[in-house]
Simulated assay, not measured.
Amino acid sequence: MDTGDLLKKHDDLWRESWEHEFIVGVREGNLPDGVFDTWLVQDYLFVAGAMSYQARLVPRAPRWDQAPIIGGLVALEQELTWFEGMAKSRGLLLDDMPHPHSAAYVRFLQSLEIESYIVNAVALWAVEQAYLDAWTNAAPGAEDYRDFVEHWTDPKFAEYIGALRSSADRALSRADERQAHRAEDAFVSVARLERDFWNIAYSQVGI
């Protein structure tokens, strides 16, 4: 089993993780007022939590996989700074409480710390791949959101995810039956969590 097999086997669920009305709204420019900003704040809070998880993964990774994970951490720190600038320009406060689903997603990542590195390598790749697939599907984006779409479809981001996918495939090539099953479970969980995360955007606008 490799990452391609996971994507093929769970194609319908994976599509739900990036073919969402929120992404369509970004592409077509018809999101209701407040929806994008609600999502933006919650995504910032999620990234902050995910960064802690990824930092703890570094010492568990094989030496050849540490570089992309560390590079991803640097990018996440820069991402938080970028979020903060965007929030300021939009008049948003970033000290909100995480939405219950956002908090649950972070807890899921933290729960993976008891799993093998193989499971974590697949989960980390899946988190980032779902994000790239979603924003690629949103391209080129309506004018109000084009800067965001361009930022999250940058070729360097795609290269990083390619490196994570190679790491996941190497890990899966060493997996025994139980590890492969747990990695698949993690992949499915990420797809569902990503799908549901977009719904957070609509949680405070009364629709």
Rank of each mutant, 00 (worst) to 15 (best):
R165F: 00
L94M: 14
Y105D: 06
D147T: 11
G71T: 06
D147S: 14
G91R: 05
R195V: 03
M86P: 00
E113D: 09
A123I: 05
L112T: 00
G162V: 01
H181T: 15
E184D: 12
G4V: 00
S189W: 07
D12K: 14
R107C: 10
V205N: 11
A163K: 11
L57T: 05
Q110W: 13
W14D: 03
T3H: 00
Q42V: 07
Y202D: 04
V74H: 08
V122W: 04
A142R: 01
A163C: 00
K9Q: 14
P140F: 11
D185W: 02
E143V: 12
V122E: 10
L6Q: 13
E177W: 06
R56F: 13
W125E: 14
R90M: 15
R27A: 14
A175N: 08
L193K: 01
W64M: 09
A67P: 04
Q54H: 08
F36I: 10
D12I: 14
Q42Y: 03
D196E: 14
L193H: 04
V24H: 11
R90D: 07
S166N: 13
Q204F: 06
A186N: 09
W135A: 04
N30E: 11
E28F: 07
D176W: 05
G25E: 11
V149A: 09
V106A: 08
D43C: 08
E143P: 00
Q78R: 08
D2R: 12
G206V: 05
E77I: 05
R182G: 01
L109K: 01
A48K: 10
H151E: 12
A142S: 14
M1V: 09
A142D: 11
H10I: 08
I200H: 01
H151R: 13
V106F: 05
A126N: 04
